[in-house]
């Protein structure tokens, strides 16, 4: 097992003259379960957001509606059917991701919560196009964004359940302040996810070399962090 520098000093005794030779061995930048879950999630999010906009249009919370061209389902009944079908993909895939990421150390290794100074420094570097990207390492801006969207996802699911089942899941409904307040929370969680997606896609467009490894896996030397 390779040693990761961010895990602190190497606790193992000096391995002696013949350590297990790692040279030349590689592992993927993004292991296949992560890639699979990422693209299933992207599919689920697109369906959830577009059908959600159609549902919103039946009774708008604000002074605007979403144009039919960018919604899914064509009418309220169709949109609800999409939304409550895709919700299973979103939730099951999301639970799998959270379990996978916490059990195998992925979150600890790659998504360590950044401090505000780090985020500030990397934001400035990114805005001035000086932030360089190493495969397999997320900078502070990325980590902040990924953790935020995971939180928005959890909030969207919890508030969505509160809107769907305000009687049976009354504790969730109460948590968000009742049926109407739950609808607002659900809307803002969606807005957070869509806002993330806009920045996420912009960053991928700025550093396009990160995209192929998210599809094919990519190659990383065993010695890389």
């Amino acid at each position: 097992m390779p040693h990761h520098p961010d895990r602190g000093p190497d606790p193992r005794p000096n391995p002696g003259p013949n350590p297990r030779p790692n040279r030349g061995r590689t592992r993927p930048v993004h292991p296949w379960p992560l890639r699979l879950m990422h693209w299933l999630n992207a599919t689920a999010i697109v369906v959830m957001v577009m059908s959600g906009w159609q549902i919103y249009d039946a009774s708008p919370l604000f002074g605007f509606s979403f144009p039919g061209r960018i919604t899914l389902g064509e009418w309220l009944g169709g949109a609800i059917a999409w939304h409550l079908a895709a919700m299973w993909l979103l939730v099951l895939n999301g639970v799998a991701y959270l379990a996978w990421g916490s059990l195998n150390g992925h979150f600890r290794r790659r998504l360590r919560p950044p401090g505000p100074r780090e985020v500030w420094r990397d934001t400035i570097l990114a805005l001035t196009f000086r932030l360089d990207h190493r495969h397999g390492v997320y900078n502070a801006v990325q980590r902040a964004l990924y953790l935020a969207v995971i939180a928005f996802g959890v909030l969207a699911v919890a508030s969505g359940l509160a809107v769907w089942k305000p009687v049976q899941l009354w504790f969730l409904s109460d948590l968000f302040g009742g049926f109407r307040a739950s609808r607002y929370v659900h809307f803002f969680a969606m807005a957070g996810i869509v806002g993330f997606l806009a920045v996420h896609l912009m960053l991928v467009a700025l550093v396009p070399k990160v995209l192929p490894p998210m599809i094919t896996g990519g190659r990383l030397s065993e010695d890389a962090p």
Binding site: T43, A44, V47, L72, G73, E74, W75, G77, G78, A81, W82, A86, L89
Partner: peptide, 13 residues
């Protein structure tokens, strides 16, 4: 089939 392949469909029309 995946959700994307059926996107243009359902509206119970």
């Amino acid at each position: 089939f995946g959700a994307l392949s059926v996107l243009p469909g359902c509206n119970y029309d």
